[in-house]
Amino acid sequence: MRQIPMREPDTLLEVRDLATHFFTDEGVVRAVDGASFDIPRGKTLCIVGESGSGKSVMARAVMGLTRAPGRVVGGSVLWCPDQDGQATDLATLHGNSRAYRAIRGPEIGMIFQEPMAALSPVHTIGTQLAESVRSRHAVSKRETRERGIEALARVGIPEPAARYDQYGFELSGGMRQRAMIAMALAAEPKLLIADEPTTALDVTTQAGILDLILDLQSETGMTVMFITHDLGVVAEIADSVAVMYLGRVVEHADVDTAFHAPAHPYTEALLRALPSIHAKTGERLAAIPGMVPHPFARPAGCAFHPRCHRFRPGLCETREPENVPVAPGHGARCLLLKPARKAAAE
């Protein structure tokens, strides 16, 4: 594996201009089309977007799990596991290669929305946990079991020793999700990629899982990349936020800035469209007009311009916006923004 020096040694994962295209019979779908973001060590980045924004496809590209007819066609995914500043470009590795498999699982753990689809129906929870433990440590059968039971206990599963020998379908939805987290964490990964892990759960169960992820993070110092469409969840757990629209990161900022001083009109509009649990009833919601365009009919210029409340004719539909650094650590792809002087000088 070729090692590349990182610019910023505190960055665990640096994604630049990542592109995943799907080559279908009807044409090419540019599901991810130049997405860039960083995740600092020990922090949580939330990737938010509506359906069709490419957030899950992007996560799969980072994990080397892009499914045909999709293919990563460009960009880099710099993975820098140690603080020596030497990184590997995961985008250059084949998804099934030995090198990738040594990273996916032991180094980068994953949890998905549907634990039932991700858990094997014909293997016990224990068998699947053991695989995860052994990907990291060469230990005896007995110790594998002990570590597996310990992992189940750590994610708050009652009677972990009994659960170890059960199957996924014998557990409730919340417990399955906990079991999946236990599997991902038994390998002690440096990065946990969570793709909508709480979307299918009830709110009280969701609250428990979010608390669990936060607790485990502060305990182990792992980095988290959390993909969700729920802005409430983002506000609960994120350190920083990347907002995606039609395959691109249109805004990235720390969580407070993203919610209270967003720079991109799309982020602003999304926040305003949410019904508030504090508000009185009867008001109309500030809906975003129109809908996410079909991937074959991507609008020219800024892809958001047909729905944008700040649309400026003659500008927005003519040029593709570049990322504008608004402040240190805060950028947005919008033609109406002026770069902050200090940040622009960097």
Binding site: G208, L210, D211, L231, A235, E236, F259, I277
Partner: peptide, 23 residues
Amino acid sequence: MSSVPIPDPRLRRARKRIRLAGE
């Protein structure tokens, strides 16, 4: 109500969440 995630990061530190035991 205490379990609903609220889209305001300032609230997460201030909020008292009731953790329900069991299922």
